[in-house]
Design a protein around this nucleic acid. Structure first.
Lengths: 133, 133
DNA sequence: ATATAAATTTAGACTAATTCTAATATTGTT
DNA sequence: AACAATATTAGAATTAGTCTAAATTTATAT
């Protein structure tokens, strides 16, 4: 069992029960959940939980580099526990989003055409293994 | 001056004045505009224009491959006239989005780990030339 | 050309995600 | 324990986008 309190303290975030549970949820659910999904999952555990807290917390976690918001075209925020850089593949049929590793020639911290690259997001789209069968 | 009527006809889209002007605007404004920006720019030209028409038109153009919607983390749709594949660089300081060319080892139409890739979107983030000065 | 059908555009109501705000609760510090 | 600082909360407000049904425009057949 991971010590989320310590992870938060290390990032100078005071570890409220809400923050601990949100971080734990994101770590255990690598499905790029939305605020609504996080809310529905945690409301049984923290009955007073407000969505505002989730919005605040996700913004704070993103700023501290604990999580990442995933660019998408649906106008709903999706969030991901931050681990080693990886890319996303979205299936056009089943709409599922998979984590995949792609060796793209971009290195964090280097310059491309004079632009200093601190982060990248690669989203591939197409048909997934299961849907092609 | 490009013949947008012809471009639309070639894609089997009947060329209403609204559609022509929206396509022309996207071609001349490669700044990944939102529906609101398109609306404000065209309302002086087409005073009866409705936002619904813009939403409908952008959806139609995307389906026909004339334009692309750009994944982002702000929950507002951004659209781009579709040209040869290119990537986007978003500056964390000035928030501008630049078109850039990155040679990433992904080829449209091929398989990666069994996933059939039909399209990709690469968004780089960092500090742009101007802001680094 | 005219009548009719089909497609497009429109305004306004509606929904859903997010932000704002101000009050309350919690936490940390002396 | 008292106080200040921080975090959480509910609900109102905002905003992007969708839905709907009527009105307009366009295309087709006579």
């Amino acid at each position: 069992m991971k010590d989320y309190t310590k992870i938060l303290r290390d990032k100078k975030i005071s570890p409220s029960i809400q923050r601990i549970k949100i971080l734990e949820f994101l770590d255990n659910n690598r499905t790029h959940p939305t605020v609504d999904e996080i809310f529905s999952s945690l409301i049984p555990i923290i009955p007073t939980l407000s969505k505002m807290t989730i919005y605040n917390t996700l913004k704070l976690f993103s700023a501290k580099g604990l999580i990442k918001s995933i660019p998408n075209s649906e106008n709903v925020g999706h969030y991901d526990y931050k681990v080693t850089p990886h890319s996303h593949f979205k299936c056009r049929k089943c709409k599922k989003v998979y984590d995949i590793d792609v060796d793209l020639g971009v290195t964090i911290g280097t310059n491309i055409d004079g632009y200093q690259v601190d982060e990248y997001n690669l989203i591939l789209e197409g048909i997934c293994k299961d849907c092609k069968k």
